[in-house]
């Protein structure tokens, strides 16, 4: 049995579904971000040595998940970094996060794919019948 806070990938024919589960919505967002990094490389290889702040907003919590992941994709692409630690704070539909990671090292991280964008396909954010929070969508690779 998986714990109450975890991430996983779910299948999409051409791409990858990222899913985070947690006891809070924040945790679900953090886990979804871990799932996204894990689509690129082995999470254990990404040393959280540099910190960065991210903030974003959206009209609703589902679009906010896409916005959060797209903000990370932008930072990964323009800073040439990978991230492995996420601390998310939500206030309504506004997100503030502290993220940690390091510069991409191809020889060590062997990135399998580069993520183009978080999509609205299979985009779902909400509380499960068991009380846990789920945050998921398909990312285009």
């Amino acid at each position: 049995m998986p714990g109450t806070v975890y991430w996983e990938h779910f299948p999409h024919q051409a791409d990858v579904g990222v899913r985070g589960l947690g006891e809070t919505l924040e945790q679900a967002f953090e886990q979804a971000a871990l799932a996204m990094t894990a689509a690129i490389t082995d999470l254990d290889t990404v040393i959280p040595r540099e910190a960065l702040k991210i903030s974003c907003s959206a009209p609703n919590v589902e679009l906010l998940l896409a916005e959060w992941l797209n903000s990370l994709i932008f930072e990964m692409a323009t800073r040439n970094m990978l991230f492995s630690r996420f601390e998310v704070h939500l206030e309504g539909n506004h997100l503030e996060a502290n993220v940690r990671g390091e510069a991409l090292d191809v020889a060590r991280h062997h990135p399998a794919v580069e993520i183009k964008g978080a999509t609205y396909t299979a985009l779902k954010v909400g509380q499960q019948p068991d009380g846990r929070w789920l945050a998921q969508c398909v990312v285009d690779v």
Partner: peptide, 17 residues
């Protein structure tokens, strides 16, 4: 490359809204 991906991302959101 990144330019096309970012344009796709931004306009998808704007069109949904």
């Amino acid at each position: 490359r990144g330019l096309g991906h970012q344009i796709g991302t931004e306009f998808l959101k704007r069109m949904v809204m």
